[in-house]
Design a protein around this nucleic acid. Structure first.
Lengths: 238, 238
DNA sequence: GCGCAAGCGTACATTTGCGTACCGTTTGCC
DNA sequence: GGCAAACGGTACGCAAATGTACGCTTGCGC
């Protein structure tokens, strides 16, 4: 099997990869396509190779906010890895792309058969937990501009690209803020020459400056990931 | 071994409990006592029997915010359960109390010896992940009063008591808001006759009304917990 | 029993973000 | 080539939360 573009799969040991390979099914993920719904049994998990998937928390009241994003560095369906069959999160395509899907029962079987596979995925789950808690921190302590800078950097890492295709409206929903708030924040970042924005596209111009603009809201999760998956790190940071 | 006051331990199967029992060491936790520091090897995990422990996320800039709390329904040191030896979180006593500590290596050995023990703790880890993402949601979407109501309810569950001993200052740090903001929010909740507050003590007066005052920010985590640990649920909700 | 510090109440000016609304511009589609 | 929808820019009044600061009470140590 050729090593996948998905970094989590690629960093598996050869035997573990071989365990999953026969059951991986290529899948194109489009925007807003739902992969998991809250309180509903997860049928398949998903390893993105391009594109981004959003994990969204919601309240009974109907409020929503993005808890984290997953790209080619990880996988969806962590509930399965944790031994459950569902989660209280929504999960859907945010930036369209390709990936590999895997039946949840196959994954359970593989995990039961290979402790090292389980360990590997649990480590990713821990990193994802870090991402969520850093999101909680950013939501509570950072302003829109800082959170936007964080989001763009994280998306860029996970896409392996300096360009992100997204509308203001979508970003506003993910960040849990007002749409014109995103417009204004993007203008601020443009003034600082950290990014350039056109209709539906945001490009990173000066990554270092953009990291500075995030004022500490970006970096902890990425450092955690780099520590646990050293081989992937350069690629993820590229 | 008498079943512990810690609900996670109490809900273990008898053999799994027996596996841990010889290594559990009673420990009194005082306020602000640190149990884990970010990027530092975790020596012991901790099962509270009373009191509350805060898990706090921090940014390189020095900003802090509470990602979640743990009481007698759970445990600290989930990083060990996930196969790592550290986490990027702070972890310290928030409301003083008693508990049982367990050496991290002993825990690792027990997990290796008993898949069912591992499964059990991973399910708690999944619930805790839910708690963190709901915190992210509350931080982004709820106002101070709602978040405060949520915090009081969660603390009450985890303490098994209607009274919580805490200063405004402490709450302000945890919620990531200004101290007088907490004072004002508490007054609002008092006006609604949901709580009564005295110097350093908050008492729940009308739990239903307080839940309503949280406007949907409370409940998702607790429902998730109740689904996975059915026997504990009545106790945790009492 | 006095003093001091911790805890709490309050005030004011300021900033940030919100809700809403309207309008120009681009884009895709027929 | 024309039209509708999606997208983005801007404006206005308003609410929420902030930073800062001052002062009162309560309780504990000496």
């Amino acid at each position: 099997m050729p090593p996948s573009q998905n970094l989590l799969l690629a960093s598996l040991s050869a035997p573990d990869r071989a365990l999953l390979a026969p059951h991986l099914v290529p899948l194109t993920l489009s925007i807003r396509q739902s992969l998991e719904k809250p309180e509903q049994t997860i049928e398949d998990v998903y390893f993105p190779e391009s594109g981004i998937v959003s994990i969204v928390a919601q309240s009974p009241k109907g409020d929503e906010i993005e808890a984290g994003i997953v790209g080619r560095e990880g996988m969806t369906g962590l509930a399965i890895v944790m031994g459950n069959h569902q989660s209280p999160h929504q999960c859907y395509g945010q930036v369209g792309g390709e990936g590999l899907s895997l039946n949840a029962n196959r994954l359970r079987a593989a995990i039961a058969a290979s402790p090292s596979l389980h360990r590997h995925m649990l480590l990713f789950a821990q990193v994802f937990m870090t991402q969520i808690s850093q999101t909680a921190l950013a939501n509570g302590r950072s302003n829109i501009t800082e959170r936007l800078a964080r989001w763009i950097l994280m998306a860029s890492d996970r896409l392996g690209s300096n360009e992100v295709n997204l509308t203001h409206e979508f970003l506003a929903v993910m960040l849990g803020v007002r749409r014109p708030g995103v417009t204004i924040a993007l203008h601020l970042l443009e003034e600082q020459e950290t990014i350039s924005a056109a209709r539906g596209v945001i490009s990173i111009v000066d990554r270092r400056k953009l990291e500075a603009a995030s004022r500490g809201s970006y970096g902890v999760t990425e450092a955690h990931y780099a520590r646990l998956f050293p081989t992937d790190a350069p690629a993820a940071a590229a």
